[in-house]
Write a protein that binds this DNA or RNA. Structure first.
Length: 765
DNA sequence: TAACCCAAGTTTCGAAGTGT
DNA sequence: ACACTTCGAAACTTGGGTTA
């Protein structure tokens, strides 16, 4: 692959806008926190500053760190930096070991040693892992550019990727990784010229950003501290009950922690570039209380009560006791059954709680779909893309592993997780109205339990309103004579609203936010079933959520994996027939991740903080897009509307207050940068900390950092330290004294009277 | 106010699979 | 056969809301 010599030509990106230049001018002089709405190019300020710092001779032997709170966001920002600066950024996070055998190992202290040695003008072994990989860059580039740029880029076969020479100087990391590198002194903050903190409203309490600032930044002599740039769209902790007088407090709090001044661009410069999003509230009637209570009692009486009282015990009774006795030699079969039963019951109690939420929001049909997912536990829930469906060998589910605490055999778990769905199925057969519930053989969708004529009852007004909203969003694509499209189940036994849409309908991008994972899956299934034609074609509905590993193997929680997440996001950006038109998301997409060309954002579950509100609104990117709240006509609805109004007020207030502070500062009235924080605070010694906290902290001479003795110093941290420092003994010949743990790791706790931990590391030359 | 739940995140470790 | 990669599970964290 030949590499273009003159990459980074200015034509590849838009020229900086006036407000960006205005901000850049300030940002390069003082530590700053840029407070701007989403989608106005905060990252561009960072790339301008990065380029600026890279060109400063006095910073030549120092590095630049860009911190992004999540891995996907880090990858995305790395691509932006690659495109917009001359740096070859290096991405470092927990999965860095997956990048390949021939890249540099940034977990190895020697690599960092080598880097800083090299940066000081010495010749070192060349570094390899510079730059973003081709696939990431390509997929990002197409999503980032507008249509014309995409076409131009497609014609330009060569790649932006350039052969960067010399040691890397820009590192994109998750904050957790940064802390991990700081503690053993692989990176020292006095060797960092610039530290960018993306989404810096994360500086709260004891989180990682705060930890970096408190435990490391504050310990660096003032003249050696890195320059700070924070980026955020909502510089507040986002508390639900934010009241107006809090604005100044919130601003001071974040300024104090980051040691930086909050700045806003002049409204006149920014205004023309603000995305035009209309925020709306749509109302729906709550279902009559008796109908809801009816379903609730069906569930209670015919599903949950018999499940816990008889079905689960029966499932255990059916097991072969002889076989069970072999499962765990230390338990008798009866003991084992007791334990396993308790385990399974506890988990299904969790399902019960989730199902209750799904019933209220999505309706009984959603409950059926949710329980279907629970019944299918044992496989990763991935999007049904071509790979899966064309797989002739069948679903190829992974085997269910034994939960260690229960030790239940896989088939028993499988059987038990299917019980709720079975019970519900039988419960739904004889309806109170006497109508027979037989699924029509050609019914679309994966739910054989329910018949068409019940759907009227089964779709909640909220779901119906959501469908109406989606149909509204479809209006611009409506063409007479194109493909058929219809709504299912609006009223008994009928399909209605046959409409015609052009192929351009694939450009429709609707984002629906829900709170619960199970609700997301349930809603997906309901929309898929009821928003498509009899031929099965229609809108593609998908679901995306976080990759929390603790959800794995937990029935009632829904598994999701990073690959599935990537795949789904890719397809959501896709505007061809293979793309996704409606994406249902938990809070995972609220922040950071770039969702371009999204023309409608719906809050299915109400927003709970002001920050969330801002971030969600920021997901609507297309000109003229809508941001919609679904609000019940009820007491709850009134509360939600009040909350929304107060979010709006608070947001305006934050901006106005920041502007006022800024103007005061320009007149020289604001005091030092980071008002309220002693910028000139002296180097904090370990004795100071001890006096403050009353506990002798662990002190790391190599970095001047101490290991915080306050809240959160529990066994895992000690355990992590043990693993972080002990490997160093293999790397350094001169290491003398490595952490000593006096107790087994299970019983570790930080008690200075009984534990000693000695860390003595060689200082970097 | 404390305890709990659920959302997100991070890491390590060991087993299973794959390539040389 | 051995080394290396990949994947799943476990064990933790923080933050915010709700509830007793």
């Amino acid at each position: 692959m030949d590499r273009e010599q003159s990459t980074h030509s200015p034509s590849r990106m838009n020229a900086p806008r006036d407000y960006q230049l205005w901000l850049f001018d300030r940002v390069k002089r003082d530590n700053s926190i840029v407070f701007m709405p989403t989608n106005t190019g905060k990252t561009r300020i960072a790339t301008l500053l990065i380029d600026h710092v890279l060109n400063q001779p006095e910073c030549a032997s120092n590095i630049i760190v860009f911190l992004a709170p999540t891995k996907p966001l880090g990858a995305q920002q790395e691509a932006v930096i690659e495109l917009e600066t001359r740096a070859g950024p290096v991405l470092i996070h927990g999965d860095v070991r997956l990048v390949g055998p021939d890249s540099d190992n940034w977990d190895d202290p020697l690599t960092w040693d080598r880097l800083f040695y090299d940066l000081e003008g010495n010749a070192a072994t060349p570094f390899t892992s510079v730059g973003v990989d081709q696939d990431t860059l390509k997929s990002f580039r197409t999503s980032w550019m507008d249509d014309a740029q995409q076409t131009a880029a497609a014609e330009d076969a060569s790649d932006v990727y350039s052969s960067v020479c010399g040691p890397p100087r820009v590192f994109v990391m998750t904050p957790a990784k940064m802390v991990e590198l700081l503690h053993p002194g692989m990176i020292r903050l006095d060797r960092v010229a610039l530290m960018v903190l993306d989404e810096c409203h994360h500086v709260k309490g004891g989180d990682m950003y705060s930890s970096i600032m408190r435990n490391f930044y504050d310990r660096v002599p003032v003249k050696d501290r890195p320059h700070i740039l924070g980026l955020t769209a909502y510089p507040s902790k986002g508390k639900a009950n934010a009241y107006e007088a809090m604005a100044q407090d919130e601003i001071h709090a974040i300024e104090r922690v980051l040691c930086a001044r909050l700045i806003v661009p002049p409204a006149a410069l920014l205004e023309p570039f603000c995305p035009s999003v209309t925020e709306e509230q749509l109302r729906y009637d709550v279902p009559p209380p008796d109908s809801h209570a009816d379903w609730q009692s069906v569930l209670d009486n015919q599903l949950w009560a018999p499940l816990f009282a008889t079905e689960i015990p029966a499932a255990f009774d059916r097991q072969d006791k002889e076989a069970l006795a072999h499962l765990n030699p230390s338990l008798t079969a009866d003991q084992w059954i007791e334990k396993a039963k308790e385990h399974v019951t506890k988990r299904l109690e969790g399902v019960k709680g989730n199902v209750s939420v799904v019933l209220t929001d999505v309706g009984i049909r959603g409950v059926v779909n949710g329980l279907t997912v629970v019944a299918q536990k044992g496989g990763i829930m991935v999007a049904d893309d071509e790979d899966q469906s064309s797989d002739a060998s069948g679903p190829a589910r992974k085997k269910q592993k034994l939960p260690p605490d229960a030790g239940a055999p896989p088939d028993l778990l499988q059987e038990i997780y299917q019980l709720p769905l079975q019970l519900l199925t039988t419960a739904l057969q004889p309806r109170p109205t006497g109508a027979a519930l037989v699924a029509p053989p050609d019914a679309p969708g994966p739910s054989p339990v329910l018949s068409d004529h019940m759907m009227d009852l089964l779709l909640t007004p909220k779901v119906k309103l959501l469908r109406e909203t989606i149909l509204d969003a479809l209006e611009p694509f409506r063409v007479a004579g194109a493909g058929d499209f219809q709504l299912y189940g609006d009223s008994a036994g009928s399909t209605t609203a046959i409409r015609h849409y052009s192929a351009a309908v694939h450009q429709l991008k609707v984002l629906v936010f829900v709170e619960r994972r199970l609700a997301a899956v349930a809603l997906k299934a309901v929309l898929q079933e009821t928003l498509r034609g009899p031929d099965g074609r229609g809108l593609t509905v998908e679901v995306v959520m976080g990759t929390n590993a603790s959800a794995a193997g937990n029935p009632g929680k829904v598994e999701f994996d990073a690959k599935a997440q990537d795949a789904i996001m890719g397809r959501f950006r896709d505007t061809t027939a293979a793309g996704i038109q409606v994406l249902i998301s938990t809070s995972v997409l609220e922040e950071g991740i770039d969702v371009p060309l999204c023309n409608c954002v719906v809050r299915f579950s109400p927003v709970v903080t002001g920050k969330e509100n801002v971030q969600c609104r920021g997901r609507a990117r297309k000109a003229g897009s809508r941001y919609i709240h679904l609000i019940p006509n009820s007491q709850d609805g009134i509360a939600i509307r009040h909350r929304l109004a107060s979010y709006q007020r608070f947001e305006t207030l934050l901006r106005e207050q920041a502007k006022a502070n800024q103007e005061a500062a320009m007149r020289g009235e604001g005091g030092a940068v980071g008002a309220g924080r002693a910028v000139e605070s002296p180097y904090v010694t370990v004795d100071d900390v001890e006096r403050e906290a009353g506990v002798r902290p662990l002190f790391v001479p190599a970095t001047g950092a101490y290991v915080p003795p306050d809240r959160g110093f529990v066994k895992d941290k000690l355990y992590k330290l043990y693993h972080a420092y002990n490997p160093l003994s293999g790397k350094y010949e001169s290491v003398y004294g490595i952490m000593v743990l006096e107790k087994e790791k299970e019983t570790l706790s930080y008690d200075p009277s009984t534990h000693t931990a000695t860390l003595t590391l060689p200082a970097f030359k």
